[in-house]
């Protein structure tokens, strides 16, 4: 039994293929890279997806050595994400499902980031920190669902770092380049630290950091301060979550898990709290088709399917709205 999963929630069009033993046979991804200094334009990204879809699907099939008629189901990330991008992927998935008479499996993009990390790191019940361009979530599994212990009240950590990076003129990938600048910083400047209970907030931090740049402070020092404050806010809520939930491990997933400085901080944090710390492998860190296929297979094996005619996209589909029958 094979399943093909499609990811198209934001800048990446990805296709993954899994078998019934949850082996990921293919994970092919094509990412839209915005013009220098710009963020993702949803329509431009959607156009990229429709132009590259056929090639990515064919490559994945070839890599997995699977034909369309060998498949049992198509999994599609229906949300959360950018409307035009979601609709492009959903249209392709519905077509494949109807044309080849395959079951259609709805997958929540956030759940997929969590499941791929658990699968790849072999973790049964960790505290999961999911940080990316669109999400900053601290979560554990309780009674059938992933419950959100803490999250961002406005923009996501990845989004904040990328935006700050573009505003000070660093090149793609902004995360890595902002951190490079930060490592050259010497002086820690004053910025707002916004931790509200278990939640964090990043919008005010960006405004304040950009103000320091305008006031003529060294870019390296502002970058250092921005990164220190942003990560300290997150680490604090993670530490609270560990103390509260008594979980024995921290698992980091999502595109922003590529951060070098945050990983260092979390290693120290885990040591201090006497828990283990693991990070999702690089190939599954950013958005990818493999994670949709894997999660789709878990759902499909528990009879989660959707009628193509009712398979609307859900741009605001929250993580804690999804039932997880396989755990």
């Amino acid at each position: 039994m094979f399943l093909l999963g499609i990811e198209s929630t934001a800048h990446t069009f990805g296709v993954g293929i899994v078998d019934e033993k949850l082996n990921i046979l293919a994970n092919v991804n094509s990412t839209y890279i915005p013009p220098k200094g710009k963020g993702i334009h949803p329509r431009e990204a959607a156009i990229h997806h429709s132009e590259n879809a056929a090639e990515v699907i064919n490559e994945a099939l070839k890599l997995a050595n699977v034909r369309m008629k060998d498949l049992s189901a198509i999994a599609i990330a229906l949300g959360p994400g950018l409307g035009p991008c979601l609709r492009t992927g959903a249209t392709i998935a519905r077509f494949l499902s109807l044309q080849f008479q395959l079951s259609l499996v709805p997958v929540n993009h956030a759940v997929a980031h969590l499941e791929i990390a658990r699968y790849a790191c072999n973790e049964e019940d960790p505290l999961i920190v999911y940080i990316a361009g669109g999400n900053t979530i601290i979560t554990t599994f309780v009674e059938g669902r992933y419950r959100i212990f803490g999250e961002t009240q406005d923009i996501a950590l990845g989004n904040a770092v990328d935006y700050f990076g573009r505003m000070i003129g660093v090149e793609y990938p902004e995360l890595i380049n902002v951190e490079k600048l930060a490592m050259e910083g010497k002086q820690l400047l004053d910025l707002p630290l916004v931790v509200k209970g278990q939640d964090v907030s990043y919008s005010g931090l960006i405004t304040s950091a950009l103000k320091l740049i305008k006031e003529g402070y060294r870019v390296e020092d502002v970058a250092l301060s921005f990164i220190e404050y942003a990560y300290s806010m997150l680490c604090e809520t993670i530490e609270r979550a560990i103390a509260y939930t008594n979980k024995k491990s921290i698992l980091l997933t999502g595109g922003t898990s590529r951060s070098i400085i945050l990983k260092e901080k979390l290693e120290k944090l885990a040591q201090g709290q006497n828990v283990s710390f693991k990070v999702v492998p690089r190939e599954y860190a950013g958005d990818n088709g493999g994670m949709i296929a894997l999660t789709g297979m878990l759902a499909f094996m528990h009879k989660v399917t959707i009628d193509p005619i009712r398979s609307y996209v859900k741009p605001m589909w929250r993580l804690d709205q999804v039932d997880i029958p396989w755990r």
């Binding site: 820690l188 300290s232 530490e239 260092e264 901080k265 944090l269 201090g272």
Partner: peptide, 13 residues
């Protein structure tokens, strides 16, 4: 003190 925090930020907080 939290080792994961910048020492200046740590003592300030």
């Amino acid at each position: 003190p939290k080792l994961w925090r910048h020492p200046i930020l740590d003592s300030k907080i």
